[in-house]
Design a binder for these strands. Sequence first.
DNA 1: AACGATACAACGAACTTCGGATTATTCAAC
DNA 2: GTTGAATAATCCGAAGTTCGTTGTATCGTT
Lengths: 143, 143
Amino acid sequence: MREPTEDQLAALGAAFETFGRRYKLADALRSERPLAELDKAVLLYVAEHAGCGPTDVARFLGVPTTTLSSATDRLVKRGFLKRERIEADRRAVALSLSEAGAACARGLVDAYRQLHLLMLSRLAPNERDPFIAMIGKIVYDDS
Amino acid sequence: MREPTEDQLAALGAAFETFGRRYKLADALRSERPLAELDKAVLLYVAEHAGCGPTDVARFLGVPTTTLSSATDRLVKRGFLKRERIEADRRAVALSLSEAGAACARGLVDAYRQLHLLMLSRLAPNERDPFIAMIGKIVYDDS
DNA sequence: AACGATACAACGAACTTCGGATTATTCAAC
DNA sequence: GTTGAATAATCCGAAGTTCGTTGTATCGTT
């Protein structure tokens, strides 16, 4: 397979750099108290895996369990997360979202959805599926 | 223009989420003492704009000048950055990289290059230019 | 010369991450 | 059945980051 050219690499790098900065600046326009990046990830994971334990989340996100404990503390304190001792194994804790937490997660998902919508809207309709297919190749193909 | 479909949005969202996590985990495999995200951005900006001032960098990156001052402190402390009072305006400071800083910047750029190379390698050769063109549309088109 | 504006650094408060120690509970072995 | 190792999670404290406030030096203008 031919190698990508230097021009191609440079163009991709420039685009990503610009994208990263734009995205960061846009994110800075949030109105509410900022939720730490880790906390957002936890919220979204628990939304999809109700009843999971802190260790699961920590392993999935690649952070120490103590760090995750801090994150869950913050989320519980804000009323977004519920911790419940489970009877099957009384050492374990089952995490689940409160109603406010679920609402916040929906808001996050929707914000991402808006971003993706904006991105796809900039492509011609007949480019969108090929683009998504290429992204999929890049992300999921573990050669 | 037809709207993107929900399926398209969902597929893109899932791909980005996976990508973000993979990228974070891969980044965690760095061997050296971790350089803060902001510091990396500063290093790369100064590499391209030798002699610029802290205020320029802060405005470009969208952070308060005090935050940027901390970042330059860290970089100077590590011997990556040089601060020089300039005679034309003795309030101003001209930032430039030391040799070690330049080497570090080259390392960073090369790491990104490797990532981009990996990404493009997963596409067929005839897909690469169209892909880059689409990314460009998404990033640079400000409709 | 005096005034306000500008460029930057120093200090301190609030927050996040994470290693080490600690508690509570389960499992395994004898 | 008791002891001991392993597991799940939290508490505590150190180190580091961000950012607002304050202070200092310098510049341009009147």
